[in-house]
Structures are given as C-alpha cells and as structure tokens.
Design a protein around this nucleic acid. Sequence first.
DNA 1: TCGAGCATGTAAATGGTTACATGATTGC
DNA 2: GCAATCATGTAACCATTTACATGCTCGA
Lengths: 177, 177
Amino acid sequence: MDLQTVILGFLNDGPLTGYELSKRMDASVGFYWHATHPQIYTTLKSLAKKGLVDFTMEYQSGAPNKKIYSITDAGRDALFRNLQSETLKDEVKIPLLVAMYFGGELGPQYWRELLANHLDAQKAVLEQYRSLCESLPQTDPDRDLKQFLRYKTLDFGIGYQQFLIRWLEDILKEIGE
Amino acid sequence: MDLQTVILGFLNDGPLTGYELSKRMDASVGFYWHATHPQIYTTLKSLAKKGLVDFTMEYQSGAPNKKIYSITDAGRDALFRNLQSETLKDEVKIPLLVAMYFGGELGPQYWRELLANHLDAQKAVLEQYRSLCESLPQTDPDRDLKQFLRYKTLDFGIGYQQFLIRWLEDILKEIGE
DNA sequence: TCGAGCATGTAAATGGTTACATGATTGC
DNA sequence: GCAATCATGTAACCATTTACATGCTCGA
C-alpha cells in the first residue's frame, strides 16, 4: 500500500484537484495515512506519467488555475489490484511511548504534567471524530457495504481514542494526579 | 523524536552491539517504533561521528567481530534533551483501514475472509505481548517509576490489541461471519 | 550439508519533510 | 493592511527500505 493507491482511491469517487485531495485526506483517511501537499502533487505527477490518472486545466481569471485530476480505466485496475495484494503491515511511530520507555529518570512530576496535557489533547481529538461521525450516515452492511466500511474506519478512530484516554487516565490515577 | 534518540535510550541502559540493539528493539519498542538493521548501523555510525556514542572492538577468533557501542556523557545529555523537547506527533499508517475505506466494491465475501484472517493474526500478536508481559516485573510508580512506565508501554500494546480484536469481531458479526 | 542464527556493513532507490516561491481573494 | 484560504509547484535534505555482500558456528 502506498500513497498512489490512496490517491487513486479518492479519485475513484470523482475528479479532484491536488488541493481538494489534500483537504479531503486530512479530514478522513488522514488519521491513519497522512500525506503533505508536496507529496500529493509529486505523486499526482507520476501517476499521470504512468497513465493511471489524467487531468484537465480549468483557467480561472482572477483566481489561481486548477488542475482537475480524474482516474483512468488503467488507474481503476491498478487501484483494485493494489487494494487486494496488500501485505497489510502497519507502520506506527508513537513518540510518547518511546519517551515513556526511556524517560523514567525525568521524574513523576514531569510525567504527571506531560500525560495530563496529552490527555486533554486526546479528548479534543475524540470530540473532533465524534462530530465527523454525526455527519456520516450509518448504514447496514447488506444495504451499502461501502458506506458501512467507511463508517467503521471512523468508528475505529473513535474506539482508539477512547482506549487511549482510558489508558492515560489509569496511569494518571496510579502516579497520583 | 528520531531513531538517534531511540538508540541513545537503549545504550543508556548499557553497552550493546548493533545486532543486539536491533534484536532488543524488535522485542520491545519495536512495536511502536520500528527500525531495520541497515538503518541502525548507519545511525550508530553518525552518532559516533557526533561523539554521542563510542565503541570498542571485540575481536573474536572463529566468530564475527563485535563493535560494542556505549553512550557518552554528551550522548546522555542529548538523550534527555530530545526526550523532553518532543512535539509528540504520532505517525500512523494502517493499510487495512485504507483498504476498507476504498475497497467496498470488493464485496462482502472478500471482507469476511480478509477480516477473519486479520483477526487470527491479531490474536497471535496479543498472545505474544501477553507472554512478554509475564516476564516483566510490574512495580508501583513510587518504588520504580522507570519500570512502571516501561510496563505501561507494554500494557498499551496489550490494550490496543484487545481493542482491535473486539472491533474486528464486531464487524464480522455485522457482515455475517 | 543445509538452514538458522550471529555479526557486520554498503548501495541504490524510494518515500517523506521542510523550506522556498508565487499570487489572487475575502473578511477583519 | 494583515491573516487566512485557495491553488500550484520545486528543491534540498533527511529517513527508510530493499537488495547486495560476506563469513563464521552450531545443531539437525
């Protein structure tokens, strides 16, 4: 799985500019696959060179021009081939856990403060996910599998945040908040 | 936070070779910060150039030579400076969730099978963490904060796997296993 | 004798971040 | 007038992966 597949996935829902792609990613898949805008623009370029996407220019007077990208048939083939042929190995880097593993010497006061701040931040993220959740229709899998699976990826984010928050609260209780 | 900090963290517990470092990472911090062996060797080299670690050669007849790395005083300073000055932004890439977001068209049968396989794999990982957990002493934070925090990072792994497994089981129930 | 584990690395390529660079519009 | 948002990209650098490369020991 790579950024190319993610971008093809978005374009499979309809044409988008690089900018819109970037925004959309930040607001959905971005929570479990992040990309910056230079990365997106360069990847779109290389996808176009391979013929997996194409684009039309929209010239706007009094506003920046737009390059509207669409997926091609070859792109659609590549998308579903990639989605199925995945090793599905997660890549995870959580600096907080590294710091906890090595930073015992920083003392209980340091950890109380840092974990309390972290807890607040994670609660804010949970609220963000919950408000997203309200705008998303929940359907049953037989009716609309696609929508159901998308809903479940957001549900994952909410469940994960809830787990994280409980875990942090437990630690804070134990080291005496 | 970067690999340099992680390596300095390990060496702060005592001297190690690149190989031992690699093994140790795989069996602990590796679950939330992974590195391959070429990465470790090149990072050790650059840490040595900066004077944050040094090494002694152990020549072994009838076995490969060892380079045993130790942290220097400058390295220890850098370690605790880095641990404290972290932005703590997580980096996460979970291909399964991307595939779910874009792969609704693959059909219920495909997802039943894939998720069931994934569930088995995650249960195996949980067992692995649990057996690690048994070999790790659990102390209270006032006695040994360092050991307590290390225990909690493993506890995170166990809690996360449990959450993941429940989440997968729920979905499988809903799409009719 | 063959594979697994120990032990070290380099090289090439890819992936990703940060900084640079431009320029219009809209609302405060 | 300034900041934010829209909209595009390049360049330099750093991080990471995969493949290549070597060679010894020990147990099955």
